[in-house]
Design a protein around this nucleic acid. Structure first.
Lengths: 241, 241
DNA sequence: ATTAAAATTGAGTGTTGCTCAATCTTTTTT
DNA sequence: AAAAAAGATTGAGCAACACTCAATTTTAAT
């Protein structure tokens, strides 16, 4: 254990804790207890006891309970972003990409019993808008790195002519991830397990229909209209001459 | 002050506190401090002091800090639902109804500096999924009463042939309110003030396009264009011959 | 005026996030 | 290998927290 921190660097420059280290033990214990009892209901004392270290060590390594929560959240964001990026490359169609991103999002966020979302909410909730500090921008960067994959799908979709060029990207992003969060809440409340892909589909499909190029009109009757226009202009030219 | 609680009953059967009462004073103080300093950072001691009562009275009237937060949240839900229902009746078109609901949602939720959303998140965050109690179902009912207005817009839209009949209502609901919540977050982060209606429009528009009947080519101006084309072609035929 | 009931109080309780001087462990220097 | 310096670890202690309850004050009924 002479070599330390050979772990891969995180998106924000920080390093993931080495497996087996006290950081990792504390984070694992915190994740376990947070998911089991909730964020507020889990004390730093219990986390330290579960991890097999003293409370002082916890504060030495993480500074505060809030920063510990942030470290866990950063790790989860890293995971989420990696999973999304990996599977993304092999999928070409924009519709399939959106479906994949949505399923990956829900699957990952359901695996931890909603802990990720609760950490995000706790973070947002305790962060008043007038306080703009480094911590906030760190979460912002993590979020940006994740949603960048979605942005790419939309941009490439527009280039390929699959998606309307007048799509407002931030709005589409809000719609996608906001819709998915509420979708997950609904699935938690109603215990949707097997049909979860179907429900995700029924959330993604309206977005897709809303931002895709309405090609049926332009190829079908739309094309017909253009043809007629051309002919009428030719006739009109004749009449004018 | 002999007559008490002549106030209107809430959706869940509870009563809104009479203005000038100690309940109202405590709730006002709590709202003020919560919005100013945050939920966790505001102690029951400070709330009681701000309201001009002792801490014991606060716990006598509300039972716990959590229930005080719940009472505030219930009142806000009531407001939100009333505002949405009021303006809704005078609007007929489904597209306009959705835009109104969205603007009302954002306007109301922005007015309290995001306190409503933070209360909801705090509530969800501290409520583990295995605990299904009366309190949870109370929030559920409040939420249901609010989203019922949206549901009505969709159902009537389907009846009128404006909205696709295969629309999955819960999915559309998740998309609408989830999208709006993230929309508000974006607006908070980027300080969108004047153009807020435009941004809301760019969030609602994709939803609308995604759930509306794709029929403009056949029923509306599309049909008209086709008719005109037919006639013009007849004229053109005559001219050419 | 007397009494019963209800409302109000604030000192007290266990627990919380967090600090810090003291202790233990490791590394460096001699 | 011994001594010294540097770092990591500890847990008792602290202020602040949500919350309780016996004692007190206020209100209502007789």
């Amino acid at each position: 254990m002479t070599e330390k921190a050979v772990a891969d660097t995180n998106i924000d420059g920080s390093r993931a804790p080495a497996p087996g280290s006290k950081e990792a033990a504390i984070m694992d214990a915190a994740i376990y207890l947070f998911a089991d009892k909730g964020l507020q209901e889990t004390s730093t004392r219990k986390i330290a006891a579960e991890a097999g270290v003293s409370e002082g060590t916890l504060f030495n390594l993480f500074g505060s309970k809030r920063e510990l929560m942030h470290a866990i959240l950063a790790n989860m964001y890293q995971d989420l972003t990696r999973k999304a990026t990996e599977g993304f490359r092999d999928i070409l169609g924009t519709r399939d990409r959106l479906q994949f991103l949505a399923e990956n999002h829900i699957r990952t966020l359901q695996a931890d019993n909603g802990l990720f979302i609760r950490l995000v909410h706790s973070y947002i909730g305790s962060d008043l808008s007038n306080v703009v500090d480094v911590t906030k921008s760190q979460l912002y960067k993590l979020n940006q790195a994740y949603t960048w994959v979605f942005d790419l799908a939309i941009k490439e979709g527009i280039e390929r002519g699959e998606i309307r060029s007048d799509t407002v990207l931030p709005a589409a992003r809000d719609l996608f991830f906001g819709g998915l969060e509420y979708c997950m809440r609904t699935m938690f409340a109603h215990e949707v397990d097997e049909k979860f892909k179907d429900y995700i589909h029924s959330v993604v499909e309206p977005i897709w229909l809303g931002i895709k190029v309405q090609s049926e009109a332009s190829t079908g009757s739309g094309q017909h209209l253009l043809d007629v226009c051309e002919r009428l202009e030719r006739v009109a030219d004749k009449l004018e001459s």
